[in-house]
Protein backbone atom coordinates (compact mmCIF):
# COMPACT_ATOMS: atom_id res chain seq x y z
CA UNK A 1 0.00 0.00 0.00
CA UNK A 2 1.51 3.32 -1.08
CA UNK A 3 -0.07 5.36 1.67
CA UNK A 4 1.64 5.17 5.05
CA UNK A 5 -0.93 4.19 7.60
CA UNK A 6 -1.31 6.53 10.56
CA UNK A 7 -1.13 5.06 14.01
CA UNK A 8 -4.57 4.79 15.56
CA UNK A 9 -3.35 6.75 18.58
CA UNK A 10 -2.37 9.63 16.31
CA UNK A 11 -5.87 9.62 14.88
CA UNK A 12 -7.27 9.65 18.43
CA UNK A 13 -5.05 12.54 19.50
CA UNK A 14 -5.50 14.56 16.32
CA UNK A 15 -9.26 14.17 16.46
CA UNK A 16 -9.26 15.45 20.04
CA UNK A 17 -7.05 18.39 19.04
CA UNK A 18 -9.62 19.31 16.38
CA UNK A 19 -12.68 18.83 18.56
CA UNK A 20 -10.92 20.63 21.40
CA UNK A 21 -10.35 23.66 19.19
CA UNK A 22 -14.10 23.94 18.64
CA UNK A 23 -15.21 22.95 22.12
CA UNK A 24 -13.41 24.31 25.19
CA UNK A 25 -15.16 21.73 27.37
CA UNK A 26 -12.95 18.94 26.00
CA UNK A 27 -10.20 17.93 28.43
CA UNK A 28 -7.73 15.06 28.33
CA UNK A 29 -6.91 13.15 31.52
CA UNK A 30 -3.92 10.84 31.64
CA UNK A 31 -2.34 8.61 34.28
CA UNK A 32 1.33 8.87 33.34
CA UNK A 33 0.72 7.22 29.98
CA UNK A 34 0.40 10.35 27.87
CA UNK A 35 3.45 9.25 25.91
CA UNK A 36 1.82 5.90 25.20
CA UNK A 37 -1.63 7.28 24.41
CA UNK A 38 -0.01 9.94 22.25
CA UNK A 39 -2.07 12.89 23.45
CA UNK A 40 0.96 15.18 23.61
CA UNK A 41 -0.32 17.18 20.62
CA UNK A 42 -3.50 17.94 22.57
CA UNK A 43 -1.47 19.21 25.53
CA UNK A 44 0.49 21.39 23.13
CA UNK A 45 -2.56 22.72 21.32
CA UNK A 46 -4.68 23.21 24.42
CA UNK A 47 -2.37 23.82 27.37
CA UNK A 48 -4.16 23.71 30.68
CA UNK A 49 -6.70 21.21 29.39
CA UNK A 50 -4.42 18.16 29.52
CA UNK A 51 -4.40 16.89 33.09
CA UNK A 52 -1.99 14.27 34.37
CA UNK A 53 -2.97 12.48 37.60
CA UNK A 54 0.23 10.43 37.81
CA UNK A 55 0.22 6.66 38.23
CA UNK A 56 -3.20 6.66 39.87
CA UNK A 57 -5.94 5.05 37.80
CA UNK A 58 -8.59 5.22 40.54
CA UNK A 59 -8.05 8.95 40.72
CA UNK A 60 -8.00 9.13 36.92
CA UNK A 61 -11.61 7.96 36.80
CA UNK A 62 -12.88 9.95 39.78
CA UNK A 63 -11.11 13.18 38.80
CA UNK A 64 -12.57 12.78 35.31
CA UNK A 65 -15.99 12.42 36.93
CA UNK A 66 -15.42 15.59 38.96
CA UNK A 67 -14.41 17.47 35.83
CA UNK A 68 -17.63 16.25 34.25
CA UNK A 69 -19.70 17.53 37.20
CA UNK A 70 -18.52 20.99 36.21
CA UNK A 71 -19.43 20.54 32.56
CA UNK A 72 -16.10 19.43 31.12
CA UNK A 73 -16.02 16.55 28.66
CA UNK A 74 -13.10 14.43 29.87
CA UNK A 75 -11.36 11.84 27.70
CA UNK A 76 -9.46 9.77 30.25
CA UNK A 77 -7.09 7.12 28.98
CA UNK A 78 -4.89 4.34 30.30
CA UNK A 79 -4.06 0.75 29.34
CA UNK A 80 -7.29 -1.24 29.05
CA UNK A 81 -6.25 -3.58 31.85
CA UNK A 82 -6.08 -0.67 34.30
CA UNK A 83 -9.06 1.22 32.87
CA UNK A 84 -11.22 -1.80 33.58
CA UNK A 85 -9.75 -3.89 36.38
CA UNK A 86 -8.11 -1.14 38.42
CA UNK A 87 -10.55 1.73 38.02
CA UNK A 88 -13.75 -0.27 37.73
CA UNK A 89 -15.42 0.89 40.94
CA UNK A 90 -14.46 4.50 40.29
CA UNK A 91 -15.72 4.40 36.70
CA UNK A 92 -18.83 2.55 37.86
CA UNK A 93 -19.79 4.87 40.72
CA UNK A 94 -18.14 8.27 40.27
CA UNK A 95 -18.86 8.35 36.54
CA UNK A 96 -21.69 6.02 35.52
CA UNK A 97 -23.86 5.73 38.65
CA UNK A 98 -23.50 9.48 39.12
CA UNK A 99 -24.93 10.04 35.63
CA UNK A 100 -21.89 11.88 34.33
CA UNK A 101 -20.17 12.30 31.00
CA UNK A 102 -16.82 10.51 31.17
CA UNK A 103 -15.14 9.00 28.13
CA UNK A 104 -12.83 6.25 29.32
CA UNK A 105 -10.33 4.97 26.78
CA UNK A 106 -8.69 1.57 27.29
CA UNK A 107 -5.67 1.09 25.07
CA UNK A 108 -3.74 -2.02 24.03
CA UNK A 109 -6.70 -4.37 23.87
CA UNK A 110 -6.09 -8.09 24.29
CA UNK A 111 -3.05 -9.43 22.46
CA UNK A 112 -2.08 -5.89 21.40
CA UNK A 113 -0.50 -5.63 24.87
CA UNK A 114 2.18 -7.97 23.42
CA UNK A 115 5.51 -7.36 25.21
CA UNK A 116 3.84 -6.08 28.35
CA UNK A 117 2.56 -9.62 28.76
CA UNK A 118 -0.19 -11.31 30.71
CA UNK A 119 -0.33 -8.77 33.52
CA UNK A 120 -1.24 -6.04 31.03
CA UNK A 121 -3.37 -8.08 28.61
CA UNK A 122 -7.03 -7.17 28.92
CA UNK A 123 -9.04 -10.22 27.90
CA UNK A 124 -11.83 -9.21 30.29
CA UNK A 125 -12.32 -5.44 30.01
CA UNK A 126 -15.37 -5.73 27.77
CA UNK A 127 -16.99 -8.33 30.03
CA UNK A 128 -16.61 -5.99 32.99
CA UNK A 129 -17.79 -2.90 31.16
CA UNK A 130 -20.78 -4.63 29.60
CA UNK A 131 -22.61 -4.92 32.91
CA UNK A 132 -22.52 -1.19 33.64
CA UNK A 133 -26.06 0.07 32.96
CA UNK A 134 -26.38 2.40 30.00
CA UNK A 135 -22.66 2.48 29.18
CA UNK A 136 -21.80 2.80 25.50
CA UNK A 137 -18.96 0.47 24.48
CA UNK A 138 -17.17 0.79 21.15
CA UNK A 139 -14.07 -0.71 19.57
CA UNK A 140 -13.37 1.14 16.32
CA UNK A 141 -11.85 -0.99 13.58
CA UNK A 142 -10.00 1.57 11.47
CA UNK A 143 -8.89 5.21 11.48
CA UNK A 144 -12.12 6.48 9.94
CA UNK A 145 -14.40 4.75 12.43
CA UNK A 146 -12.11 5.79 15.28
CA UNK A 147 -12.29 9.49 14.37
CA UNK A 148 -16.04 9.20 13.90
CA UNK A 149 -16.63 7.57 17.30
CA UNK A 150 -14.39 10.07 19.10
CA UNK A 151 -16.60 12.78 17.56
CA UNK A 152 -19.74 10.88 18.58
CA UNK A 153 -18.42 10.38 22.10
CA UNK A 154 -17.77 14.11 22.44
CA UNK A 155 -21.21 14.98 21.08
CA UNK A 156 -23.22 12.43 23.07
CA UNK A 157 -23.88 13.06 26.77
CA UNK A 158 -23.11 9.96 28.83
CA UNK A 159 -20.27 7.63 29.65
CA UNK A 160 -18.39 5.76 26.95
CA UNK A 161 -15.76 3.01 27.06
CA UNK A 162 -13.65 3.22 23.92
CA UNK A 163 -11.30 0.30 23.31
CA UNK A 164 -8.34 1.66 21.42
CA UNK A 165 -5.64 -0.11 19.50
CA UNK A 166 -2.68 2.26 19.42
CA UNK A 167 -0.93 0.76 16.40
CA UNK A 168 -1.78 1.49 12.78
CA UNK A 169 -4.76 -0.23 11.21
CA UNK A 170 -5.76 -0.29 7.54
CA UNK A 171 -8.60 1.90 6.38
CA UNK A 172 -11.82 -0.03 5.95
CA UNK A 173 -14.15 2.89 5.38
CA UNK A 174 -14.18 5.88 3.09
CA UNK A 175 -13.73 9.30 4.63
CA UNK A 176 -17.13 10.71 5.45
CA UNK A 177 -18.72 7.33 6.21
CA UNK A 178 -21.40 7.83 8.83
CA UNK A 179 -21.41 5.87 12.09
CA UNK A 180 -23.98 5.64 14.86
CA UNK A 181 -24.22 4.21 18.35
CA UNK A 182 -25.59 0.70 18.24
CA UNK A 183 -25.11 0.29 14.50
CA UNK A 184 -22.79 -2.36 13.08
CA UNK A 185 -21.51 -2.31 9.49
CA UNK A 186 -21.92 -4.96 6.84
CA UNK A 187 -18.32 -4.92 5.66
CA UNK A 188 -18.29 -7.87 3.24
CA UNK A 189 -21.36 -9.37 1.63
CA UNK A 190 -20.75 -13.09 1.38
CA UNK A 191 -23.57 -13.73 -1.05
CA UNK A 192 -21.44 -14.89 -3.97
CA UNK A 193 -23.01 -15.05 -7.42
CA UNK A 194 -26.39 -14.16 -6.02
CA UNK A 195 -26.47 -17.18 -3.70
CA UNK A 196 -26.95 -16.80 0.03
CA UNK A 197 -23.73 -16.81 2.05
CA UNK A 198 -22.41 -19.93 3.74
CA UNK A 199 -22.00 -18.19 7.09
CA UNK A 200 -21.82 -14.84 8.85
CA UNK A 201 -19.03 -13.66 11.16
CA UNK A 202 -19.38 -10.72 13.51
CA UNK A 203 -15.98 -9.33 14.43
CA UNK A 204 -14.92 -6.65 16.91
CA UNK A 205 -11.84 -4.46 16.67
CA UNK A 206 -9.19 -3.91 14.01
CA UNK A 207 -7.32 -7.17 14.60
CA UNK A 208 -10.30 -9.50 14.39
CA UNK A 209 -12.10 -7.59 11.64
CA UNK A 210 -8.87 -7.90 9.64
CA UNK A 211 -8.70 -11.65 10.30
CA UNK A 212 -12.38 -12.04 9.42
CA UNK A 213 -11.82 -10.34 6.05
CA UNK A 214 -8.87 -12.67 5.37
CA UNK A 215 -11.03 -15.63 6.29
CA UNK A 216 -13.66 -14.42 3.84
CA UNK A 217 -11.02 -14.37 1.08
CA UNK A 218 -9.83 -17.87 1.96
CA UNK A 219 -13.36 -19.24 1.99
CA UNK A 220 -14.32 -17.42 -1.22
CA UNK A 221 -11.47 -19.23 -2.97
CA UNK A 222 -13.24 -22.45 -2.00
CA UNK A 223 -16.57 -21.12 -3.20
CA UNK A 224 -17.90 -20.48 0.32
CA UNK A 225 -19.31 -17.03 0.97
CA UNK A 226 -18.60 -15.45 4.36
CA UNK A 227 -20.43 -12.28 5.28
CA UNK A 228 -18.36 -10.08 7.58
CA UNK A 229 -20.03 -7.69 10.01
CA UNK A 230 -17.92 -5.12 11.83
CA UNK A 231 -19.66 -4.98 15.22
CA UNK A 232 -18.09 -1.62 16.25
CA UNK A 233 -20.44 -1.16 19.21
CA UNK A 234 -20.55 -3.94 21.75
CA UNK A 235 -23.21 -1.97 23.61
CA UNK A 236 -25.75 -1.19 22.39
CA UNK A 237 -25.32 -4.22 20.14
CA UNK A 238 -26.78 -4.10 16.64
CA UNK A 239 -28.60 -7.39 17.09
CA UNK A 240 -31.12 -6.69 14.33
CA UNK A 241 -28.44 -6.44 11.63
CA UNK A 242 -26.62 -9.48 13.00
CA UNK A 243 -29.73 -11.65 13.29
CA UNK A 244 -31.08 -10.59 9.92
CA UNK A 245 -27.85 -11.68 8.24
CA UNK A 246 -27.57 -14.87 10.30
CA UNK A 247 -31.11 -15.93 9.49
CA UNK A 248 -30.25 -16.47 5.82
CA UNK A 249 -27.52 -19.08 6.22
CA UNK A 250 -28.25 -20.34 9.69
CA UNK A 251 -24.53 -20.17 10.56
CA UNK A 252 -23.14 -17.44 12.80
CA UNK A 253 -19.74 -16.81 14.37
CA UNK A 254 -18.27 -14.15 16.61
CA UNK A 255 -14.60 -13.12 16.61
CA UNK A 256 -13.03 -11.01 19.34
CA UNK A 257 -9.64 -10.24 20.86
CA UNK A 258 -11.05 -10.92 24.34
CA UNK A 259 -12.45 -13.80 26.37
CA UNK A 260 -15.01 -15.63 24.26
CA UNK A 261 -17.23 -15.42 27.33
CA UNK A 262 -18.54 -12.14 28.67
CA UNK A 263 -17.92 -9.95 25.63
CA UNK A 264 -19.11 -10.06 22.03
CA UNK A 265 -19.60 -13.84 21.95
CA UNK A 266 -21.85 -13.74 24.96
CA UNK A 267 -23.75 -10.66 23.82
CA UNK A 268 -24.50 -12.22 20.42
CA UNK A 269 -25.36 -15.58 21.98
CA UNK A 270 -27.86 -13.86 24.23
CA UNK A 271 -29.44 -12.09 21.28
CA UNK A 272 -29.64 -15.33 19.32
CA UNK A 273 -31.12 -17.30 22.20
CA UNK A 274 -33.77 -14.67 22.82
CA UNK A 275 -34.60 -14.33 19.13
CA UNK A 276 -35.94 -17.86 18.83
CA UNK A 277 -33.80 -18.42 15.73
CA UNK A 278 -32.28 -21.87 15.37
CA UNK A 279 -28.67 -21.25 14.35
CA UNK A 280 -25.35 -23.04 14.33
CA UNK A 281 -23.10 -20.80 16.40
CA UNK A 282 -19.40 -20.59 17.29
CA UNK A 283 -17.18 -18.12 19.14
CA UNK A 284 -13.61 -17.18 18.28
CA UNK A 285 -11.88 -15.65 21.28
CA UNK A 286 -9.80 -16.48 24.33
CA UNK A 287 -10.88 -19.75 25.92
CA UNK A 288 -10.76 -19.04 29.66
CA UNK A 289 -7.01 -18.39 29.79
CA UNK A 290 -4.76 -15.61 31.05
CA UNK A 291 -2.63 -13.68 28.62
CA UNK A 292 1.11 -14.10 28.23
CA UNK A 293 4.07 -12.31 26.71
CA UNK A 294 5.13 -12.35 23.06
CA UNK A 295 4.75 -10.55 19.78
CA UNK A 296 1.22 -9.80 18.71
CA UNK A 297 1.71 -12.26 15.83
CA UNK A 298 2.83 -15.02 18.14
CA UNK A 299 0.00 -14.30 20.53
CA UNK A 300 -2.62 -14.40 17.77
CA UNK A 301 -1.33 -17.86 16.85
CA UNK A 302 -1.10 -18.90 20.49
CA UNK A 303 -4.69 -17.91 21.27
CA UNK A 304 -6.28 -18.90 17.98
CA UNK A 305 -7.13 -15.41 16.76
CA UNK A 306 -6.35 -16.08 13.11
CA UNK A 307 -8.24 -16.23 9.83
CA UNK A 308 -7.43 -19.94 9.78
CA UNK A 309 -9.26 -20.38 13.08
CA UNK A 310 -12.28 -18.60 11.67
CA UNK A 311 -12.16 -20.75 8.52
CA UNK A 312 -11.96 -23.93 10.60
CA UNK A 313 -14.84 -22.79 12.79
CA UNK A 314 -16.98 -21.95 9.76
CA UNK A 315 -16.38 -25.41 8.34
CA UNK A 316 -17.24 -27.01 11.65
CA UNK A 317 -20.73 -25.54 11.51
CA UNK A 318 -22.64 -28.08 9.51
Amino acid sequence: MAETLPEMRSVYAQTLVEIGAQDPRIVVVEADLMKATGTGPFAKAHPGRAINVGVAEATLASVAAGLSVEGKIPFAATFGCFASRRAFDQFFLSANYAGLNVKLVGTDPGVAAAFNGGTHMPFEDLALMRVIPGLRIVEPSDPVSLAAYVHLAAETYGCVYLRLQRKAAPKLYAEGERFEWGRAKLLRDGRLDGKKEHAVVVALGAIMVGEALKAADLLAAEGLGLTVIDALCLKPLDSSLILEAARRSGRLLTAENHQASGGLGSAVAEAVAESGLALRFARIGIKDEFGEVGTQDWLQDRFGLRAANIVAAVKSLN
Partner: peptide, 20 residues
Protein backbone atom coordinates in the same frame (compact mmCIF):
# COMPACT_ATOMS: atom_id res chain seq x y z
CA UNK B 1 -23.24 17.97 44.18
CA UNK B 2 -21.73 14.50 43.84
CA UNK B 3 -22.72 10.87 44.30
CA UNK B 4 -20.60 9.15 46.91
CA UNK B 5 -20.57 6.00 48.98
CA UNK B 6 -17.52 4.04 47.90
CA UNK B 7 -15.01 5.64 50.24
CA UNK B 8 -12.11 7.60 48.81
CA UNK B 9 -13.87 8.52 45.59
CA UNK B 10 -15.61 11.69 46.74
CA UNK B 11 -12.42 13.57 47.55
CA UNK B 12 -11.02 12.52 44.19
CA UNK B 13 -14.11 13.82 42.41
CA UNK B 14 -13.91 17.02 44.48
CA UNK B 15 -10.39 17.43 43.11
CA UNK B 16 -11.72 17.09 39.57
CA UNK B 17 -14.42 19.68 40.31
CA UNK B 18 -11.89 22.07 41.80
CA UNK B 19 -9.60 21.54 38.81
CA UNK B 20 -12.44 22.36 36.41
Amino acid sequence: DMSTGSLGQGISAACGMAKA
